[in-house]
Computed example of a mutant assay.
Amino acid sequence: MSLEKRLQEIWYGGAPVPLVLRALVPVYRGLRALHRAPYAFGWRQPQRLPVPVIVVGNITVGGTGKTPLVIVLVEALRAQGRKPGVISRGYGGSAGSPILVDSSSNAALCGDEPVLIRRATGVPVAVGRDRVAAAQLLLAASDGNEPAVDIIVADDGLQHYPLFRNVEICVIDGERRFGNGLLLPAGPLREPLARLDTLAFCVCNGGLAQAGEIPMRMVGDTAVAVGDAATRRSLHDFAGQRVHAVAGIGNPARFFALLRAAGIDAIEHAFADHYPYQPRDLDFGDGLPVLMTEKDAIKCAAFAHANLWQVPVRAELPREFFDALARERI
């Protein structure tokens, strides 16, 4: 069993926590305290930008559905007449200094999620390890005689203290929740659960939302040919068929469950989050259709075959969430 699978069993599967992992928790807690101390004690101040910042993140390791929420937030802000831009660390990409992302950007450089956001929304997107510098790059851009953005959404970054934020949103995996509830490396928590009490909104992706949480569900009902975006089929066209299901996301089981709910007989292939696909990874030797997430498809377009399909998903949240966000006066 790989280390990643072993940790998943410990964090989410009820396997006993080895003493060595428990012993490392105080080390992690201490390092986290050192990282946060300059801002907690006022020795350094987070950088305030001339526009509001909304941070969408999580307190657990791995994906929880942040990117779909960022996309729907961007669309909602634009519908309100705002001009949103997005910043991201660009996980999975090699970019160091901040760069702007466009629809043709290489995911190997920028990361898969920023490219997905840019293609899905068309708004300005910048990536960089230094999120403040990435935001300043967005602010330096212009749209004619007007600034290109008047509000910034950060994809991840709850633990990035140098950037001041006006609103913090935490996305919770409604199925896995917080696992065994322990801090890294004994559990999946980046921060203690008490951190949730400091946030403006907690969004529950799937499962049953708890008191005070905003329910969010993922909807995916269309399959799009990876090599030809104009070719589309209803996902239910694959019902009763045997297919290969490929997912390199934080929680691949969520994608596989989506396919099973559509009546599809899926052979599951789970890859690591941000996995850099090669043609051999999708060569299953039997000619069956291959269905994958939209995030995975970004890295496979160059070698897509005719039977390779992506299944885009969209986040749906109650109207009350957007109304409450508007009342934040950002």
Score class of each variant (00 low, 15 high):
Arg233Trp: 13
Ala209Ser: 03
Val243Glu: 01
His236Asn: 15
Ala266Arg: 05
Asp296Asn: 10
Thr222Lys: 11
Met218Gln: 12
Val226Thr: 03
Gly285Thr: 04
Phe284Leu: 07
Pro279Arg: 13
Val203Ile: 06
Ala266Asp: 13
Asp273Lys: 10
Arg217Ala: 12
Leu288Gln: 10
Arg233Gln: 13
Asp281Gly: 05
Pro215Met: 12
Gly207His: 01
Gly187Trp: 06
Ala245Met: 06
Cys202Glu: 10
Arg232His: 09
Gln241Ser: 14
Ala261Lys: 14
Phe238Asn: 02
Gly285Glu: 06
Phe201Met: 00
Arg254Lys: 15
Leu235Asn: 02
Ala245Lys: 03
Glu213Met: 07
Pro279Asn: 12
Ile298Phe: 11
His244Ser: 02
Ala257Glu: 15
Glu213Ala: 02
Gly187His: 01
Ala266Thr: 08
Asp296Cys: 10
Asp286Val: 06
Met216Ile: 11
Thr198Gly: 02
Ala239Tyr: 13
Leu189Val: 00
Phe201Trp: 02
Val243His: 03
Pro276Ser: 09
Leu189Gln: 01
Gly220Leu: 04
Leu193Glu: 09
Pro192Met: 11
Glu268Asn: 12
Phe284Asp: 00
His244Cys: 05
Val290Trp: 02
Arg190Asn: 05
Arg190Asp: 05
Ala209Tyr: 03
Ile264Val: 14
Gly227Glu: 01
Ala262Val: 12
Thr293Ile: 04
Asp237Glu: 15
Gly287Met: 08
Met218Ala: 14
Met216Tyr: 08
Ile214Asp: 01
Met218Ser: 13
Pro289Gln: 09
Asp286Tyr: 08
Phe201His: 02
Ala200Met: 01
Ile267Val: 14
Phe256Thr: 03
Gly220Tyr: 03
Gly187Tyr: 05
Phe238Tyr: 15
Gly187Asp: 05
Asp286Glu: 07
Glu268Leu: 14
Phe255Gln: 02
Gly263Glu: 14
Ala272Gln: 15
Phe238Asp: 00
Ile214Arg: 00
Ser234Ile: 05
Gly263Cys: 13
Pro188Ser: 09
Phe256Ser: 04
Phe271Ala: 11
Gly240Asn: 09
Thr293Phe: 03
Leu259Lys: 06
Asn205Ser: 06
Leu189Lys: 03
Gly212Gln: 07
Phe284Pro: 01
Gly250Ile: 00
Gly250Trp: 01
Arg242Lys: 13
Thr198Asp: 11
Cys300Leu: 09
Ala223Asp: 03
Thr231Asp: 14
Val203Phe: 03
Gly263Phe: 14
Pro215Asp: 11
Met216Phe: 10
Phe201Tyr: 01
Cys202Asn: 10
Val224Met: 06
Phe271Trp: 15
Arg242Trp: 12
Pro289Gly: 05
Arg242Gly: 05
Phe201Cys: 01
Gly250Ser: 04
Ala272Trp: 13
Gln241Val: 04
Leu258Asp: 07
Ala270Lys: 10
Ala200Gly: 00
Asp286His: 06
Gly250Ala: 05
Val243Lys: 00
Val219Cys: 15
Asp228Trp: 09
Gln241Ala: 11
Gly206Pro: 02
